[in-house]
Simulated assay, not measured.
Amino acid sequence: MATPGLIRTIISPGRYVQGQGAISRLGEFLKPLGSRPLIVSDDIVWGLVGHEVQTALQSAGLPLTREKFGGIPTAKEIDRLVQVIAANDSDVVVAVGGGSTMDAVKSAGFLCGIRWVTVPSVASTDAPTSALAVIYTEEGAFEEYRFFPKNPDLVLVDTQLVARAPAAFLAAGVGDALATWLEARATAQAHAATMAGGLPTLAGTALAELSWGVLWDNALPALDAVREHVVTPAVEKVVEANTLLSGIGFESGGLAAAHAIHNGLTAAHQTHGLAHGQKVNIGSVTQLVLEGAPTQEIRDFVEFTTRVGLPNTLTEVGLKVTDEDDLITVATAATAAGETIHNMPFEISVGELVSALKSIERFSRRVRSDARLPEPVAYAHAQRVSSVAL
């Protein structure tokens, strides 16, 4: 529960820029922040946008220095980037890519005491706007959150770049963002603290709820548009919901069970090929079960997220109801001291969480059968979203 006298607060990035072709103006928005930028990107993303970034920096009279990202935001990779920043005397570091790249860059930028910028190549998480990073072990398991005293100085999202990426990335972002309202309302009910360092403000909670509404109205047509690699008003709305609304909403509205369950799932090796938002969606369904939410609310959520292309059964994330030891490991990690599951308005034991995780398999299968939606199958490697790009 909340500490007596805890303040209310909201945090956000210094500037948010979104639109088709926005990457061509990167130099314009970057120049006020520094004169010696270091661009960090993996080879896949750089192959897609390298020329555009180079042209944008040249037009602003900025030099181009690019460093390859190692793939996973580990403590070792962050320390390596710190050394690269120091060697180049960079005064601003720019992440071009997915959530993993951005988390590593934010961490390195903070340690070096310079400004940092995020340029997401996909709208698969709300990491671009946040003042925190998720750090993983070399094996890909969740290790810790790192918190920073400020958000990125600039977030620049080119929606045409987002539309060029596979639709699975956008769907993963929807999974991450849908959890925002579920967790924010739980945090508000519990009068618990948020990652912004205080009680949620009305604004933070309202943005979380707005994100939810935008996604229910626009996610399906936006995904259809992205499958054709085109940008429509629905795409613009979903990108903003996935990135800005969810970003401020989770950070200043509060996290609860869904993201803690995600973190627990990373302890099971079977889930390591899955995207952040895919695992978060399992957390959202499970949180609804733990809350004893109305059956119709859970049914609607399962049906909608199935249509989006998100997993809502253990089978789809490589687990089974009979994997007792693995599920206990997941639940133990999710309920560890300091985890956000303790923002729920009631206590949740390891046994209760294991039971809830097991229950979603049969329930979700029934919902999908009633709605004549595809039966759950284990996600093939080709269906998983690469952690390098994320």
Results as ranks from 00 to 15, higher is better:
E361W: 10
I39T: 02
D103Y: 12
G98H: 00
P128Q: 01
L156M: 12
G351D: 15
I360G: 07
E352G: 13
W181E: 03
E352S: 08
K68R: 14
V350L: 05
S355C: 05
P149K: 10
A168K: 15
G34H: 06
V354D: 13
V162E: 03
S41R: 01
N312P: 03
G47R: 10
G173Y: 07
L199Q: 09
D370F: 00
G50D: 12
P166L: 10
I135M: 14
A241C: 11
S12F: 12
T101C: 14
R384T: 14
S364N: 13
A260Y: 03
G198I: 01
E375V: 15
L199Y: 01
I328L: 11
H272E: 06
H342G: 00
L161S: 05
R66P: 00
S364F: 08
T266E: 10
T137I: 09
N343M: 06
A219S: 15
G50Y: 04
D325F: 04
Q160C: 04
A190K: 13
P120V: 12
I78H: 03
D89I: 05
N263Y: 02
K279S: 09
L161E: 12
S369K: 13
S252Q: 05
A192W: 03
E236F: 04
A268Q: 07
P13H: 12
A179N: 07
A87T: 13
F304A: 03
L81D: 09
C112W: 02
I261G: 09
N88E: 13
K320I: 00
V17A: 04
G253F: 00
M102Q: 14
E228D: 13
V53K: 06
I44K: 03
T243A: 03
V317R: 14
Y16W: 00
S386I: 05
V155I: 02
M102D: 07
R227H: 06
H276F: 04
I85D: 05
V230I: 06
L207D: 04
I248M: 11
R365S: 11
V330I: 03
I44E: 07
G109S: 11
L199M: 10
A206T: 05
L244K: 06
Q20V: 08
R368S: 06
A60C: 05
A258K: 12
T335F: 10
S369V: 07
V40D: 00
H229C: 13
G19M: 02
A104N: 10
A108S: 07
T332E: 14
V82C: 15
Q54Y: 00
F304G: 13
A87F: 02
V94F: 08
E375R: 15
P13W: 11
D176H: 05
H381F: 10
G97Y: 01
T271I: 07
A268M: 04
A258C: 13
